[in-house]
Amino acid sequence: MRVIFLTVLIVLMSRHFLFEPVAVHGESMMPTFEDDDKVVLMKIYTIENFDMIVFTAPNGVNFIKRVIGVPGDRISMEDDQLFVNGRAEAEPYLDKNRKIVEQQGTVRLTEDFEEFTVPAEFYYVLGDNRLNSMDSRVLGFISKDSIVGEVKVRLSPLEHVGIVE
């Protein structure tokens, strides 16, 4: 009986403090993540630019987004080109969405915005589906305290199981 109790305790503690499985809801991260994909969050993390995180929005709903700016970064967007600290950044995860935009005859995937600095203890996040994403452009900066965890592993669909990069 002690072994069963100890095992259950270890599993519950691990899930609460180390990792958590979650389901993706919505299309804001397409094509990186589809609706109902299953991922595992690590709750011990160091967040860097372009990591994917889950955070709790002000309305209490959890969102998965890509971190574009960490505290102290200067961020701007001009002609669909992201600049972080004055340096143009490639965003290869947007390639499929850019092709769709071109086919639809839309000019840009992401509207321009002037340079700003991400405040201490906050992050700037964007969805990969820039035309259909509630992200920092709407929600503002994401506080460090609202982050649930960093996405590390995809559990489903089976053809995409593995480490998330």
Rank of each mutant, 00 (worst) to 15 (best):
T56H: 02
D135C: 06
R130P: 03
D145N: 13
T110I: 13
R15T: 04
K43M: 03
R108E: 15
Y45V: 07
E114M: 09
A120Y: 11
F83Q: 10
D73M: 13
V164M: 03
R15Q: 13
Q103S: 14
G105W: 10
I44Q: 07
A120D: 14
T46S: 13
G127T: 01
K65R: 08
E48V: 11
E27G: 04
R108L: 13
G149Y: 00
K43C: 08
L94F: 08
Y123I: 07
F116I: 10
N85G: 04
V54Y: 01
F19C: 07
M52T: 11
E111V: 08
E89R: 12
E165G: 03
T117F: 09
T46E: 10
V40T: 13
N132H: 11
V3I: 15
P71L: 00
Q81K: 12
N97F: 06
P92Q: 09
D73Q: 10
P71G: 04
R130L: 08
D51W: 01
Y93K: 01
E115T: 14
G140K: 11
S136F: 04
E102L: 07
F116A: 10
N49R: 10
S143V: 02
H16G: 05
P31M: 08
M30V: 11
I44M: 12
V61D: 12
S156W: 15
T106Y: 14
Q81F: 06
S146K: 06
N129L: 06
V125R: 00
K65Y: 01
I163C: 01
L94Q: 04
P58A: 04
P71T: 12
G72K: 09
A90F: 08
F17Y: 15
M30I: 13
F55M: 03
L41R: 00
F17A: 12
I64P: 00
R130E: 05
S133Y: 02
L139W: 07
T106C: 06
P71W: 02
M77R: 04
T117L: 06
V8A: 15
G127R: 00
V138E: 10
G140T: 07
D79H: 13
D51S: 05
V84K: 11
A88W: 05
R154S: 06
M52C: 11
S14H: 11
M13F: 15
H25C: 04
G127K: 00
M134N: 05
E89Q: 15
A88C: 11
L82Y: 02
